[in-house]
Design a protein around this nucleic acid. Structure first.
Ligand SMILES: NC(=O)c1ccc[n+]([C@@H]2O[C@H](COP(=O)([O-])OP(=O)(O)OC[C@H]3O[C@@H](n4cnc5c(N)ncnc54)[C@H](O)[C@@H]3O)[C@@H](O)[C@H]2O)c1
Ligand SMILES: NC(=O)c1ccc[n+]([C@@H]2O[C@H](COP(=O)([O-])OP(=O)(O)OC[C@H]3O[C@@H](n4cnc5c(N)ncnc54)[C@H](O)[C@@H]3O)[C@@H](O)[C@H]2O)c1
Lengths: 209, 209
DNA sequence: GGCCTAATGTGAATTTTATCACAAAAAGCT
DNA sequence: AGCTTTTTGTGATAAAATTCACATTAGGCC
């Protein structure tokens, strides 16, 4: 199943949750599409792909939908994560409360710099040397890399050796993993460049019309 | 031109710059592909799409390549950006030095909370009321939204009314723009859920083999 | 109960994206 | 100078993703 479909499923889940909070019991593919900025056909196709079905004319029962989607996404249980590199970005993440809505909890931070070992509000920060033990003992599967690019590959390897299975990487370099680990990258400079390009395209289109 | 191609072009540019720093004068499509984790055919196809050509058997002259790509990406000149919401994420961004390599400079921050108006190391933080004037006077085209989700749509509208043309949004909601503005979203919870899904898929595959 | 309408579910068609594969050109060697 | 090798550039092909379009079914109404 492609990454894009799964991202859409997560989006569906989020907005369906919002509908639920508003007191709705049913939704239509139209409602969902509108709310995430897609088409109803795609919503239905995606659902069909995962064997999720609703009621002709009656739409989908929110309760059922959420259950099915959560099952697919594997988010029934709380997912624990760690952050390595408690600088600007890492610090923002360990203090962020929004992940808990999604059943994700950052349980520890790690850094090489002793000045970081003070506890953040809720999350304890440990020396990097303790990562491996901690991850093994707590059976952590998810790691977030917020160290400078120069250190990122080395941290990835440490994580892999500790048994981490999924990584979100903020360092602007290509990490070399292996087939035991899935890596997603967040590259903000790339996002900005992309926006700049499309602004320029728009400008040119306007000039020529 | 699709977003994905442009993202690849940016990646090409970044690694070509790195080759240049290492003293290389030429590169081959193979080298580039290897470095960004793609195929050489795709590198060449992408180049061909933009009319970038090299020398049969001789590869590409780095100097030419960089010039051509920068021209396409519209990054010859410095791009000024502003950040709204100088909390955890916004604070990280205004203190980040890495964007300057990419010819992007965050020139100001804006917040609703007077406690934020102290200057960050290099970037001044202004009351949100001053955004419109500032953006118009300085002719800013690029805005980054780091406010809580509840405030994000309103900030987007303020940005649009001030003349901002491209937005990077960290709030986990769908923003409604118009055709004068291009919006990219960074949704970290979504990224994490995605990773969790693929970890689970891997697990199931292993069990069944 | 029969009719009408509004929704789903999904094959088929289309569009988009990526890969193949190979002719053509250039560099180097003898 | 001719032969060999390497690498580009790109049509052709394949694969993936999206949209279309419509048969099907269920709810509501008279
Ligand atoms: N801050 C931003 O806005 C921003 C934007 C885009 C990308 N990034 C990227 O995100 C990453 C983090 O950026 P930041 O601004 O938070 O950096 P930072 O310098 O504020 O923090 C980095 C942290 O990593 C720690 N560290 C360094 N080497 C380590 C190691 N080997 N093991 C453990 N910890 C180590 C440092 O002690 C520090 O606390 C960088 O790769 C950066 O390029 C940051
Ligand atoms: N911090 C994270 O790790 C993280 C992770 C994922 C998503 N996000 C998202 O990024 C956004 C920012 O998160 P954060 O943790 O930096 O939040 P934060 O609470 O630390 O900062 C938000 C800032 O926005 C300012 N603000 C609020 N309303 C405003 C308004 N109307 N105009 C101007 N300024 C206003 C506040 O004064 C504050 O300084 C949120 O939407 C959050 O959901 C953050």
């Amino acid at each position: 199943m492609s990454k894009a479909v799964i991202i859409r499923l997560s989006k569906y889940k989020n907005i369906i949750k919002r509908f639920k909070k508003l007191g709705f019991v049913k939704v239509f593919s139209d409602n969902i599409a509108e709310a995430i900025g897609g088409t109803s056909a795609q919503v239905r196709k995606d659902f069909s792909l995962f064997g999720i079905s609703g009621n002709k004319r009656g739409g989908y029962i929110i309760e059922n939908l959420l259950e099915k989607i959560s099952e697919i996404l594997g988010k029934d249980s709380l997912q624990k994560a760690i952050v390595v590199g408690i600088g600007h970005i890492g610090g923002a993440l360990v203090n962020y409360k929004g992940f808990e809505n999604e059943n994700i909890k950052i349980v520890a931070g790690f850094d090489i710099d002793p000045a970081r070992y003070k506890n953040e509000k809720n999350v304890r920060i440990y020396p990097i040397e303790q990562l491996k033990d901690f991850v093994k003992k707590e059976n952590i599967k998810l790691g977030i890399i917020c160290v400078p690019d120069i250190a990122a590959q080395q941290i990835l390897e440490l994580m892999i050796s500790a048994g981490i299975r999924g990584v979100l990487n903020f360092a602007p370099i290509l990490l070399r993993g292996n087939d035991t680990v899935v890596i997603n990258n967040v590259n903000l400079a790339l996002e900005l460049e992309n926006i700049i390009y499309f602004i320029n395209v728009q400008d040119k289109e306007m000039q020529s019309s």
